[in-house]
Amino acid sequence: MHEWALAEAVVAAARQIAKKEGLKEVKEVVIKVGELQQVELEIFEFALSKLEAQGFEGTEFNISLAKTELQCRVCEHKWLFDKTNLAEDTVEAIHFVPEVIHSYVRCAKCGSPDFKLLKGRGVWIERLRGAK
């Protein structure tokens, strides 16, 4: 249910954007969810639906997954995150705080933990559409 906290953040951010842009109504919030954080989409969507009552009645939350791309800073090797060979508690730790991936994952080519997350880290708002 940590997804609930992320959904609350999305709603709070959408409210701030709407206020800043003078929107009376928010019609659509486009949300990207990076695979690295392994957000349970069903729970996330459920949380958003419950939070809709707080001023987002009729808002469409459009959620899609984004692949996680990593790049080694040492050898520049690029790869996509894959949890297949990770232990369950490691996967769970990365779910809570994606940066702990640096404690558990190494570059497949040179073995360095010094890599960057190019894209697909966690939850972000791609765009918001509304009416003034």
Partner: peptide
């Protein structure tokens, strides 16, 4: 963060430190 990193070394650059810090502030109740 040690709840999630356990006994492993955690080599983080500045942007990762910021991201982890923001995440923990955002989700800790």
């Amino acid at each position: 963060l040690v709840f999630y990193t356990k006994d492993h070394a955690t080599p983080l650059r500045g942007a990762d430190v910021s991201n982890a810090l923001i995440e923990l502030f955002a989700i800790t109740i």
